[in-house]
């Protein structure tokens, strides 16, 4: 059992931050790694990349968007309540080498995943440009933490309610044009965002890391559910990733496999909303 010690609703309650007591995981967690969480006995195993960790206090931080039954169930968990299972740290950590100038692009909850990587790259002695974006101002998360983790922070909103009016790819292109000596890009967010960021960085010949989020079951290399095609080769995101060279990723295949259970996910979520709304559910909130 893993206790939630701090909980915060962000982006008008669509994004939730949890600090969870998990000392063994916190002691080992590195930027870029993920955990698998399960709310209760009947729950799915949900992989989430950690947004932060505090080994001294034995805590890990996850930040997730409510998109279906499992994350809606997570949202019902309050401070003092527990996740039944938290497993990790899993996946390969990010290589935080000093390469000079880097640009970190984060969209939506991808900003949370990006945060420890940007911070780590800055601590390694890199000059870090960061671009973060969301649909609108209300949905933007972690501005302050990203500001601290970066040397220069740029903000974009799709509707222009804050920062640059437009997509993160605009600021990415502008920055790469201005600073030809940027040696590395890290882009983390929804699949279309990562795909288009990679198109831009490819034009400039800048090496680009992305963090993939395919569906997983065990997360330890046993089931093969998270297979992705990288440079024409089958890789398992849970043990070979989740970070890969963005220019090698078969984005269309990833996007297709993410849609595997759209029908089932809707059935499950609708049933949950009906039960939860009527007070018949057993989630305890």
């Amino acid at each position: 059992m893993f206790e939630i010690v701090e909980r915060q609703e962000m982006a008008q309650g669509t994004i939730i931050s949890n600090w969870i007591k998990a000392p063994k995981i916190a002691a080992k967690a590195k930027p870029g790694q993920f955990v698998i969480l399960r709310a209760n006995d009947k729950g799915e195993r949900i992989p989430l990349t950690m947004a932060d960790s505090d080994p001294a206090k034995g805590l890990i931080n996850i930040i997730y968007m409510v998109v279906g039954k499992s994350t809606a169930l997570f949202k019902t968990l309050q401070v003092g309540q527990f996740y039944q299972d938290v497993i990790g740290p899993l996946g390969q950590p990010t290589h935080l080498d000093k390469v000079g100038k880097v640009i970190c692009v984060g969209g939506g909850t991808g900003i949370a995943v990006m945060h420890p990587i940007a911070r780590g790259l800055k601590q390694a002695g890199n000059f870090v440009y960061s671009v973060i974006g969301s649909r609108s101002k209300d949905l933007l998360i972690m501005e302050e933490r990203m500001k601290a983790a970066s040397d220069e922070l740029m903000i974009c909103t799709d509707d222009g309610t804050y920062g640059h009016h437009g997509f993160v790819t605009d600021k990415l292109r502008e920055t790469l044009e201005k600073h030809k000596d940027i040696a590395l890009a890290v882009c983390i967010g929804p699949v279309p965002m990562m795909k288009f960021c990679c198109k831009v960085t490819k034009e400039f010949g800048v090496k680009t890391l992305v963090s993939l989020n395919p569906i997983m079951v065990d997360g330890t290399g046993m089931c093969g559910c998270c297979r992705v095609k990288i440079g024409g080769q089958m890789k398992f995101a849970c043990v070979d990733g989740p970070e890969f060279d963005g220019h090698q990723v078969d984005w269309d295949e990833l996007n297709l496999r993410l849609r595997s259970y759209l029908v089932e996910e809707k059935v499950s979520y609708d049933q949950f909303k009906a039960g939860h709304g009527s007070g018949k559910c057993s989630c305890g909130s």
Partner: peptide, 29 residues
């Protein structure tokens, strides 16, 4: 990569460990 292609490990893990045969009573499809 097509949806519906499983390794036996995944197919059996979903059904046995995660009890997907009892979906949506259990959450894993």
């Amino acid at each position: 990569h097509f949806i519906g292609v499983y390794s036996a490990n995944e197919y059996l893990t979903r059904s046995n460990l995660m009890k997907a045969y009892d979906f949506p009573n259990y959450d894993t499809p």
